[in-house]
Amino acid sequence: MAHSNGTSDTQALDALDFSDAEHREVVIIGTGPAGWTAALYASRANLEPLIYKGPEPGGQLTTTTDVENYPGYPEGVMGPDMMQHFEQQAVRFGTDARYGTVTDVDFSERPFRLVVDEETPILANAVIVSTGASARYLGLENEQRLIGRGVSACATCDGAFFRDEEVLVVGGGDSAMEESMFLTRFASKVYVAHRREELRASQIMQERAFDNDKIEFLWNTEVIDVLGDEQVEGVKLINNETQATWEKPVAALFLAIGHTPNTEIFEGWLDMDDAGYIQTKPDSSYTNIPGVFASGDAQDHVYRQAVTAAGTGCMAAIDAERWLSEHPLEDEAGSTKEASDTEKPAPAAA
């Protein structure tokens, strides 16, 4: 997703004609566990939610393999399979699921105005934001140039292309350990470069990684450049204690350095913290704009689990349902704009 916030987007949105736009009770943005759970609850509440799948349908779980910590799957489940289960369950109750990305929003009045794929206007009486987070890159010029040519943020997608080759993973958390262990199925050697002296990963994941003969840790080490013309041939590393730099030949660079919330299009509308996570009111999914609710990783920089995302998706649907019943738009076609002027924003139940 490469769009900027601010005036240029707003002008593009203003140029669109919303007079004949499709008008929905609830629009849900994003299809990770939060979005699908919100859709499940909203559809069971007869709100006939419309959900847009966004640029990465299914979200982060589609790039994982075994999910072992989602309750209800005693033997574990494959991430992509689980997301299909979520979808099937939401669609079964009438969720209208569509491919498309919401590229701009205008939350200045109800009904809220959304733009899909930069050209389709949609009106919504309530919006549930569940846009999640996307893998973070280091931001190096050569890294960006070589994405798909050895630079990857998805070991499960791309690991098999590096059979019997040496690869390097950047990161020190659970996902870095998981990706490294997955990569040992194919790679002859997996280096894990971590900028600190100890891992953030959970004890069980650390132990598994330390026990793996194919994994070698490079402590206090950061990647400062990616080498190669047509494809990755190596990385340039620096030891951040000694400042020594060296080049290491590897065939691939896998990033596992966390995620960035996908909240750019809401900048200027929704209150966020410095990292771009949407701020919700305590014990609720309410944002600063009444009628706009946030769930999942877009608003959670603490837990970031499938099960917590699903939980907050449920909260958002219940909050939206109650809020809509307390704040009906008088004319569903949206011709009496005055309706929204008479309403006072409802503070979150505190």
């Binding site: 640029p55 798909g148 997608c157």
Partner: peptide, 28 residues
């Protein structure tokens, strides 16, 4: 075609790669 990441989508015209997209992308 040096595909080292999937999904990779290559667009061919007259036997040559004319365009490409790596990763999930909007239909539009």
């Amino acid at each position: 075609y040096n595909v080292r990441s999937i999904p990779t989508l290559l667009f061919f015209k007259d036997g040559e790669v004319a365009d490409q997209v790596v990763g999930a992308t909007a239909k539009k």
